[in-house]
């Protein structure tokens, strides 16, 4: 009886030691993940992709009722704004009719000039539409998860919402892809001010207003100027709209994205033929 009691005590002590060891092991694992993530270990990337593949279908199921609610909300919202929208559309239509005639003339002129200069047209881009199934849960990161199905999507491809750039593909795992938004701290996109051709880098800062950095202090950048991709670095083609300059205070240029990312339901993933996977090994970040 005494022997049994001693054994039980020893087993109890052993279990307590193992439990403590397990907790320490968990802390070590967490620290390891953190450090490996910092050095861009492929192992961390693989774990990330595997987890998205496993939990993605759950997210798709959960997202379904949200989509239905959103559609009902949009339906009533649209009905309530139908008169004002109609008025705006009439005015826009009138402007577009005027512009259409101008565009026709310019198009013919452009074709003639292209022929004269032996101009090589840029590559035709192909695109797919993808549904957003999850948004980031906190303000430490700005990303979305999209369902791409069986489509061939690659890391680095551009993601458009409402005709303007909202981000790029960060990783693809099975039928799902993670999109890093232009507002995320990891996003760096070479841009140019459309009006004055002033170049810079649009750098995300985890706020709704990314900043344009590496711009000359005396550069002509005004509120309302349109910011487009510059094409420098080769990842993004030139001329894709991103946003407007919302403020320029003492050289700190804040940009407001054209697309209201929170309201987008579907995105377009555009393939211009060059992705991050095809770049040399060292370039893990978009230049």
């Amino acid at each position: 009886m005494k022997k049994n009691g001693a054994w039980l005590l020893k087993i109890g002590q052993l279990r307590a030691v193992l439990r403590r060891f397990f907790v320490v092991l968990l802390f070590v694992c967490a620290g390891m993940f953190f450090l490996l993530g910092k050095v861009n270990s492929p192992m961390v990337d693989k774990i990330d992709k595997a987890m998205i593949s496993v939990t993605g279908p759950v997210m798709s199921v959960i997202e379904f009722p949200a989509r239905i609610i959103h559609r009902i909300y949009t339906y009533f919202y649209d009905i309530s704004h139908i008169y004002a929208d109609n008025k705006i559309l009439r005015a826009e239509n009138h402007q577009l009719m005027v512009l259409q005639n101008k565009v026709r003339t310019l198009e013919v002129e452009n074709q003639l000039l292209e022929r004269l200069l032996n101009y090589v047209p840029p590559l035709e881009a192909s695109f797919i539409s993808a549904k957003i199934i999850a948004e980031s849960g906190d303000n430490f990161t700005h990303m979305i998860l999209v369902y791409i199905g069986d489509e061939n999507v690659k890391r680095g491809q551009i993601v458009l919402g409402d005709e303007s750039v909202i981000g790029r593909i960060d990783s693809v795992s099975g039928h799902y892809a993670k999109v890093i938004l232009v507002t995320d701290i990891n996003s760096k996109i070479p841009v140019v001010v459309e009006r004055t051709r002033v170049r810079g880098i649009l750098s995300g800062n985890n706020t709704a207003f990314p900043q344009m950095i590496f711009v000359r202090s005396n550069a002509d950048v005004q509120e309302g100027d349109v910011i487009v991709t510059s094409g420098v670095g080769g990842m993004f083609p030139a001329g894709l709209p991103i946003g407007f300059v919302s403020s320029n205070k003492g050289g700190v240029i804040s940009v407001e994205t054209m697309a209201d990312i929170s309201r987008i339901e579907y995105v377009r993933i555009v393939d211009y033929g060059l992705t991050l996977d095809e770049l040399p090994d060292s370039s893990t970040e978009v230049p």
């Binding site: 959103h70 957003i132 999850a134 980031s136 906190d138 303000n139 709704a208 209201d260 929170s262 309201r263």
Partner: peptide, 21 residues
């Protein structure tokens, strides 16, 4: 947590998304 990762598709809602975890 999954419920609160659901996209709401409403303006600026991302900034007010609670950390349920």
């Amino acid at each position: 947590m999954f419920l609160f990762y659901m996209p709401i598709h409403m303006s600026q809602t991302n900034f007010f998304r609670p950390t349920i975890g």
